[in-house]
């Protein structure tokens, strides 16, 4: 490789190594340290001055206590399971809403489509926090939704949606919908309408044609959308923290509390490592799909 080329590759590669890859080694290391009331709040701290003997002493002080805590405390187990459950439900709901929307977008006149795509992505450019805040305003017991329903006489007592799992689901579906709509639209837009006409000519009902032709051809888009929503949703912190109740368990929130409130860094690191281990399969699938897509 020519020197200039080498530089063009080396600079971003070094940056990613320093600020994305290497830090994971540190998370792994601190997850096997002991919590301490000190600065930094864990031990042992390795240093070049230790020498071989010192290094050996410190290595022997490493411990799996934090993992024992994570696996023995029901609170963590419940938080992992509940995160996976909520993320899975929310991802399916996003697909159920996103698919008809993306499908309708492909049926719009050609000159509208660019505008519709821009409209679908635009919420991504507005702050996540602000969009969640908008839902607090709507869903609160004395919020806009209850106010509207009460004054229309549709309900007689306010609905309690805020601070429940339902509110968290609404928040995830709302925040991640653009990530579902975009890959679905891209996959559906590429489909040749002649295929559906051919199916109709051969006597397939529209429903059957949809099921046997549209869906299988849209699968890459569906798959991409599912991964793009599910993976970040499992580790979501802001949505359960702001829209969920105190009993809404999600692992991102447990990690945050362990870190910022209990100041137990080894436990927070162990929670992060186990979360990564859970997400490794969908993450690898996402990587492979990205590589395939970018190579195409």
């Amino acid at each position: 490789m020519r020197p200039l080329r080498r530089l063009v590759l080396a600079i971003p590669a070094l940056w990613l190594f320093a600020f994305f890859l290497a830090p994971f080694a540190l998370v792994a290391k601190i997850s096997v340290s002991r919590p301490l009331v000190a600065q930094p709040p864990y031990e042992p701290v390795f240093s070049l001055a230790d020498g071989w003997q010192g290094l050996w002493d410190k290595l022997s002080r490493l411990t799996l206590d934090a993992y024992a805590l994570v696996f023995s405390d029901d609170l963590y187990l419940d938080a992992y399971l509940s995160s996976l459950r909520l993320a899975a439900i929310a991802t399916l709901l996003t697909l159920l809403i996103g698919f008809p929307l993306a499908h309708a977008m492909t049926r719009a006149p050609r000159q509208w489509r660019t505008a519709l795509v821009l409209l679908a992505i635009a919420p991504f450019w507005t702050s996540f926090l602000i969009r969640i805040y908008a839902w607090i305003m709507i869903l609160k017991d004395e919020g806009l939704l209850n106010h509207a329903l009460l004054s229309l006489g549709l309900i007689h007592a306010p609905l309690s949606i805020f601070a429940t799992e339902a509110a968290v689901l609404i928040g995830i579906v709302y925040s991640y919908l653009p990530f579902m709509v975009l890959p679905l639209y891209t996959a559906l837009e590429k489909q040749d309408p002649a295929l559906l006409e051919a199916a109709a000519d051969l006597g397939a009902t529209p429903l059957r044609a949809f099921w046997r032709i549209t869906c299988p051809l849209a699968w890459p888009g569906i798959f991409a959308g599912l991964l793009l929503v599910f993976i970040p949703a499992v580790g979501e912190f802001v949505i359960p923290d702001l829209l969920g109740g105190s009993d809404t368990l999600m692992i991102g929130r447990s990690l945050w509390n362990e870190f910022f409130e209990n100041r137990d860094w080894p436990a927070a690191s162990a929670v992060a490592i186990v979360l990564l281990a859970i997400l490794i399969v969908p993450l690898v699938l996402h990587e492979r799909q990205q590589v395939k897509e970018r190579a195409a």
Partner: peptide, 15 residues
């Protein structure tokens, strides 16, 4: 692009 932000944040802070 998809990694939960709490993991990225925690790893950077520990770094």
């Amino acid at each position: 692009l998809v990694m939960p932000e709490v993991i990225i944040g925690l790893s950077l802070l520990l770094l």
